[in-house]
Design a protein around this nucleic acid. Structure first.
Lengths: 224, 224
DNA sequence: CCTCGGTTCAAACGTCCGTTTCAAACGAAC
DNA sequence: GTTCGTTTGAAACGGACGTTTGAACCGAGG
């Protein structure tokens, strides 16, 4: 046969991607997914085993190429810098740009998958843990190291907080498509991906370079 | 009678707050909420009318005092500055500190409500729209104006993007309690609210002050 | 005492859910 | 042509869901 089963499988993944990104894991119904995929209800359990496995397959299909792209850009930034530390802007762009550009690439899930990704952490905790500890672990480690090299004077704890904030900004930008329109009275659009990159990268670069606050609440040994 | 109905009502709100923040709107079951509240299943519909109205009541109970606190801090920052523009750090702190401190105030919902708030935009769109357009509208307008005053040289479109990123970072910090631990190898804790404020405020202040990127993708009339 | 509005209660309603079952269809191998 | 493993199909399963119902309860007012 050519690819009869692969075909249904792919249609199920596509339909599931759309449904999960619109309504979340709980909100999306298998009957709705199989109807849109023109497949039988039982096909989900035949091909994937359960609803949760289907969800993980949807995520895995996109996140692996995405992470490869991120790491390739990071490799390029490090190669460009030679023996020196990579440029902070390049590292940040390697982290955020593939995700934002994916939002426009309809052939690879487009906005649907990106929103799904952005709200992953709101899905049942068991699912989120399987992803955080799995495909995302390597990206986290590589970018932690690269940022530490690009910002050698920064305390490690401080760096962790800043990565936390930065990833938060990225994920939230991806999910919420209404807020920017409201904040700008309709002048700016969340659909403007290159605009988002052009705004987000310098925003985060400046934030990562911020001098540590000489605060009373921060009487730890490490300062600046 | 003393307050027999008010009592059940409050217990329902408390239980619903916990359940919704753990499992989301779809994931939380009314039977679970009423059991924990030691109330009858029908009490939800007697007091609130529907599950959706219960959810909105949970949000409204906390968000109104929270917004009043934010606006009071903003008033104080503006009063302190007199005729001059308010200090950027003060404005940012007025926006983020009440939310982060609320995470520690168990008497006012604590971590449960704050996580619920952070994931609001992931709930069914109808619910999120009712909140964005309602209680949050005034806060959005006031802080937009204050930030524009504190950063007079900043393009309005650029400011909207930066507010979008900043609120994203705040909301995401609130929701994800695992990422920071992973990023710092357990050295930093999301529970450290004053630490979060001390790290987030200078991070965002530096980000808001970032010089605009001279990018090829940005050939709009307004530059720097 | 009785009544009455506000509140609680147990029970049921109809619907939708994820999952299972088992037979039918199908193409490839012999 | 028969067999076999793979894939699809229609139908049902049991359970959980939000919601509704109607009676019981109870303190206050007459």
């Amino acid at each position: 046969m050519t690819t009869p089963s692969t075909d249904t499988r792919a249609r199920l993944l596509d339909a599931a991607e759309r449904a999960f990104s619109d309504k979340g894991f709980d909100g999306a119904a298998l009957r709705e997914i199989t109807t849109e995929a023109k497949a039988n209800l039982a096909a989900v359990h035949y091909h994937f085993g359960s609803k949760e496995e289907l969800f993980l397959a949807v995520v895995a299909r996109r996140i692996e190429p995405l992470n490869r792209e991120r790491l390739a850009l990071l490799d390029a930034a490090e190669a460009k810098a030679g023996a020196r530390a990579p440029a902070l802007e390049d590292v940040i762009e390697a982290l955020v740009a593939p995700m934002l550009r994916l939002a426009r690439d309809e052939a690879r899930g487009g906005a649907a998958f990106v929103r799904l990704f952005g709200r992953l952490q709101n899905e049942p905790e068991a699912i989120w843990r399987r992803i955080l500890g799995g495909p995302l672990a390597e990206v986290r480690a590589r970018f932690s190291a690269a940022l530490a090299r690009a910002l050698p004077e920064l305390d490690r704890g401080e760096l962790a907080w800043r990565m936390h904030f930065a990833i938060g900004a990225l994920c939230n930008v991806i999910v919420d498509r209404q807020r920017l329109e409201l904040l700008s009275d309709g002048q700016q659009s969340s659909e403007d991906v290159e605009g988002a990159i052009a705004h987000l990268v310098p925003f985060l670069a400046a934030a990562f370079r911020a001098r540590t606050r000489p605060s009373p609440a921060q009487t730890r040994s490490a300062r600046r």
